[in-house]
């Protein structure tokens, strides 16, 4: 993707590689500066007799170029939320729009093409393929769309240089250190020049020093590639570096103001649904009547 593609005034664009035209968000009320919008999201898991509702009436808007941190207790549903934004999973109810794409209408094949074009995803674990070298791993998303090997490898090599691993291109994934592996996975996430970077505890598995280095790199890449980034983290220092920090708690996102490692809830709910905060823990709680009065 050419670099001007991340310009703020860019128009909606179709997803290449999808077999049918991807569905678009309704033109009305679509704000061009918005990169990602989640409306009235509900996600529940049916296991056993009682459904487990992770969130209900969750709203989120992320603007282009933002770097947003999402924090929250273990099990609050942060990973699930990221999956929904990447079209890796479907919400029980509600809609997610990414740029101009309405994720709810994508077929599995279209969703794959969407991820390939628009999303860079980084996990807590590097998830590199052990049979392949760092270069091959980094080039994989390009190879998957049948880009010629020479250009795919050239782009991957460039990204590996950006993450400081040009000397390790021909090492197998298993021959790299934890920090190096995570840097390769960053290169892999960005090799397609996506507009949205989703990172799920990208430094969670690294020691403090390495975590800082990897996060520093992530910040730099965010600026360099003019990304919109959403970062799930447990590390408040990292969260404090982000433009905005949201706390996922009891199925809602709350904006948090962070100062010198101390967090303070602003008590302003991101989601403006039912303002009376439920006093019971969200986990393993059935919401009565489903979606309640969600006004964005």
């Amino acid at each position: 993707m050419p670099s001007e593609s991340s310009s703020v005034v860019e128009q909606s664009f179709p997803i290449e590689g999808a077999t049918e035209a991807a569905p678009f968000a309704p033109a009305t009320g679509f704000d061009d500066s918005v990169m990602l919008r989640a409306e009235d999201l509900r996600k529940e898991y049916r296991s056993g007799s009682q459904p487990l509702v992770l969130f209900d009436g969750l709203n989120l808007t992320v603007h282009r170029g933002e770097m947003v941190a999402i924090v929250g207790e273990s099990g609050s549903g942060k990973s699930t939320l990221l999956h929904l934004m990447a079209a890796l999973d479907r919400p029980t109810a509600g809609d997610v729009y990414c740029a101009s794409t309405w994720l709810g209408k994508l077929t599995a094949t279209q969703a794959a093409a969407f991820r390939n074009r628009e999303i860079g995803y980084v996990w807590q674990l590097h998830y590199l393929l052990p049979e392949f070298t760092a270069l091959e791993n980094a080039a994989m998303p390009l190879l998957a769309r049948d880009e010629p090997r020479s250009t795919a490898f050239a782009k991957a090599r460039e990204l590996l240089r950006e993450v400081g691993l040009e000397a390790r291109t021909h090492h197998l994934a298993g021959e790299l250190s934890g920090g190096e592996q995570q840097r390769v996975s960053l290169a892999r996430a960005l090799v397609t020049q996506p507009r949205l970077l989703l990172a799920d505890e990208p430094t969670g598995n690294l020691d403090n020093h390495t975590a800082e280095a990897v996060f520093g790199l992530l910040e730099r890449l965010h600026t360099m590639h003019r990304l919109t980034s959403i970062l799930v983290t447990h590390n408040m220092e990292i969260a404090a570096h982000c433009g905005r920090t949201l706390r996922l708690h009891e199925g809602r996102l709350h904006e948090v103001r962070l100062q010198a490692g101390r967090s303070e809830d602003t008590s302003r709910q991101m989601a403006t649904a039912s303002s009376e905060a439920p006093g019971h823990p969200i986990v393993r709680t059935a919401f009565p009547g489903g979606n309640t009065a969600g006004t964005a």
């Binding site: 990447a86 994989m140 998957a144 769309r145």
Partner: peptide
């Protein structure tokens, strides 16, 4: 993982 970065089913 392959699917997560866009390898189609």
């Amino acid at each position: 993982v392959l699917m997560s970065y866009g390898v189609r089913p």
